[in-house]
Design a protein around this nucleic acid. Structure first.
Lengths: 260, 260
DNA sequence: CGATAGATTGATACTGCTCAATATGGGTGG
DNA sequence: CCACCCATATTGAGCAGTATCAATCTATCG
């Protein structure tokens, strides 16, 4: 029983519990799963399209992005991940990866056998529920991205990305009083917003000129959250951060026996 | 025990089982859930953003689309649904809807209390797994839509939408030997592809001129699947229709006891 | 102090948008 | 059965937002 003082599972458990509390038993069952931890460089592939991995990656520190490629080779980043994200939960039930995941920064990555996760989910309904909820929220974020890329103009797209990243960093306890560093090059921003790098550059300058953000080197600082959100048309409901909180405050999504 | 000869749950069960077989017990447990069935007109809202519904809609016949709106009022359709789709599975765990669902055609809609579904999932791991898998595949489709809208040009976007719809219709047993009617106006196509209706019109004409599709009235006929797929850059892996089949043929996503 | 990835700038081209008019077709009431 | 109506589809002309291409500049690192 060589259990380390601080389980590497902590960021994951914290994230799952932000949405819905786990029982101590479930928490321990999760933390007891064997996990291999390793450090990887920036730009390391964690998943490749077509893979049939028997292990599931978990991001313990650092950042990563998930992307797909067209046949012509254009890249579209479809999500950004940070500490605590179970990048690969879908490998538990879908055998073949339909996308790539690559680190944005140096990162600490945990690896768990998909079997272990699946068996745990089968054995513990609350864990299964937590995993399912996690997937549902990911799906909600993808929907918002479809909207972002499909129906917003360049400044709003970039602004929205910044708002989402900022909000999620905050939620994950990774931001320093609203201040955060976006670990993405302009080319990556372009791939995340369906733009070109050149246009990203000009759009960032525009947002700067509007007094919404400040940039020095490769770090972006949000100066005026209020107006950045306005420009982005950002509403955080789709992140579903409220779920746990609303239950705690009795905001009553409590179901009634309303069936016939 | 007044069980109807053909349960309204059939299309749902068929869809879930396309991905992974259910045990007879699970099948019956699902079919035993109380469901209210009703007919609705085209353009009926089944879910509205901000709703906290205690019931979950299931599409038993007809078509529907899921969409989001920007603050300025632009619409982005993020998915299309057909018979057998559990439109609202996310309401089981996420209290507040972050999008709208509206019928495209007249439709038959089943309604089930979210509680019933949740309790069933808690009680029956295989059902929970089936629901989770359904959500994972939906998420995969959303990712593909981000790519479609973000990184493909107009003809490819439309072509891709047609390919996806055709493939899914086929899978759901709704298409008549490759022939199908797409129940969408050009305006709706525009909202699904991040384009304008005018440009959709021109793009459809272009695809027609290329000999890929034929149109009469409001129905589209794919003439040349091969080349339509090529233009679309369509690869069906993201639909994960293979999962059940690959397991049946022993394509071995069978996990080994590879943990330490 | 080069080497190199990334950022920035300018000039130009083009895809797709806007606006506005016209056509079509299917349904409806008289 | 016809005239009308409405939503939808189609067309044209001009414009706008982004893309493309090609330099140049700037950090950062060995």
């Amino acid at each position: 029983m060589d259990k380390p003082a601080v389980s590497p599972w902590m960021p994951v458990i914290r994230k799952l519990e932000r949405r819905h509390p786990l029982s101590p038993v479930d928490r321990e069952a999760l933390a007891a799963l064997p996990m291999t931890v390793r450090e990887v460089k920036a730009a390391t592939y964690l998943v490749r399209e077509g893979d049939q991995p028997e292990h599931c990656c978990i991001l313990l520190s650092g950042y990563a992005h998930r992307h797909k490629l067209t046949k012509e080779g254009s890249r579209q980043i479809v999500s950004i991940h940070m500490a605590g994200d179970m990048i690969d939960l879908q490998q538990v039930l879908l055998s073949r990866a339909d996308h790539n995941v690559q680190t944005l920064t140096r990162a600490t990555v945990g690896t768990v056998a998909t079997d272990c996760l699946k068996n745990l989910a089968l054995a513990r309904p609350q864990i299964a529920e937590a995993f399912w909820r996690d997937t549902l929220i990911d799906a909600s974020i993808f929907r918002e991205w479809v909207l972002n890329v499909g129906r917003r103009e360049a400044p709003a797209r970039i602004a929205h990305l910044l708002c989402e990243f900022g909000t999620r960093s905050e939620g994950a306890g990774l931001s320093d009083c609203g201040r955060f560093e976006l670990p993405m090059t302009q080319e990556q921003l372009a791939d995340a917003t369906g733009m070109t790098p050149v246009h990203v550059n000009r759009t960032l300058q525009y947002l700067g000129a509007q007094g919404l953000i400040e940039r020095k080197m490769r770090s972006i600082n949000v100066v005026d959250w209020q107006n950045l959100k306005r420009v982005a048309g950002f509403q955080d409901n789709y992140l579903h951060e409220e779920t746990a909180a609303s239950q705690a405050t009795g905001r009553a999504p409590i179901a009634q026996p309303a069936t016939g």
